[in-house]
Design a protein around this nucleic acid. Structure first.
Lengths: 145, 145
DNA sequence: ATAGTAGTGAGACTCAGTATCATTTTCTCA
DNA sequence: TGAGAAAATGATACTGAGTCTCACTACTAT
């Protein structure tokens, strides 16, 4: 998926929510696009030094409300943001329990379909309306082990 | 799995870590056992009014280090605790994105085995050592929809 | 008994995240 | 174009879940 698509889609989503696709918001989207996995606020603040913290927090919240971006929390208590799935590909996370680093990975389509079916069946039993699933692997990354 | 097993196991695990299985720790374990899913600290403080907050936090941390209990964080930013998997059964979570409530569910053994195999294969590609997986369904619970 | 170690609980403290508000930028439409 | 309206910015104050401290209490073993 090319940069232009993501930018266009982000602009459209924000516009629907009566928000503008300003320079700072573009920079946040670009930063998330550049990462190989979800980024913590700290990482974003580091990467975009000229953007003040309050602007970053505020805009990430707005981007999340507009469905441009997704907020995830792993067990290290730092919120992380990534581009929403419809702007990337469906994927999962490898979480290093040592350093907290998170990287993306994908399952093959067959396994994913099977999993999805099983999950919907399981959810129905509890009267639960599923909108998404989140699958994380906890372990030790290559550089920590 | 009966209460006595959990208590014995907890006592053994704590003892290995040079900790005692005191009354407050027993009460925490019992409270987690009684829940139908992971409990937030707030819920535990409510349920065990006579235990001060500092004791609850401290002991949950100790119980976690001793592998009696697992700490999980969902997207609502409240840490939740549940009994460690070897004291219960392997299971997953249904997370209500409206009210934040979390309940347990299990997949059938076949699907679980298949999933596990696919996950290990995927992790190997990234040089990742998997120790656990965590699968959450996000959606709307029966009482919120 | 008593010394040593672990646990307790009240309250102070930390810091990621949120709210406020005066100022600046951008859009709109006459 | 340009004036007013609406949204965005950024410095700073605030909030609250979670952590730390420390004087005190309760086990436990020799």
């Amino acid at each position: 998926m090319s940069d232009i698509d993501v930018d266009e889609e982000a602009a459209a989503l924000l516009s629907t929510a009566n928000h503008r696709y300003t320079t700072s918001r573009k920079r946040l989207v670009a930063a998330l696009q550049a990462g190989e996995g979800p980024l913590t606020i700290t990482q974003i603040v580091e990467a975009e030094k000229s953007l003040p913290q309050s602007t970053i927090y505020r805009n990430l919240t707005i981007l999340e409300e507009a469905n441009v971006v997704t907020r995830i929390v792993t067990n290290d208590d730092f919120a992380r943001y990534e581009l929403a799935e419809h702007l990337t590909e469906h994927h999962h996370h490898l979480i290093c329990s040592d350093c907290g680093h998170v990287i993306d990975f994908a399952l093959d389509a067959e396994t994913e379909a099977l999993l999805d079916k099983a999950l919907h069946q399981a959810a129905e039993k509890s009267g639960f309306q599923v909108s998404a699933h989140q699958l994380d692997l906890i372990g030790t990354c290559a550089s920590c082990s």
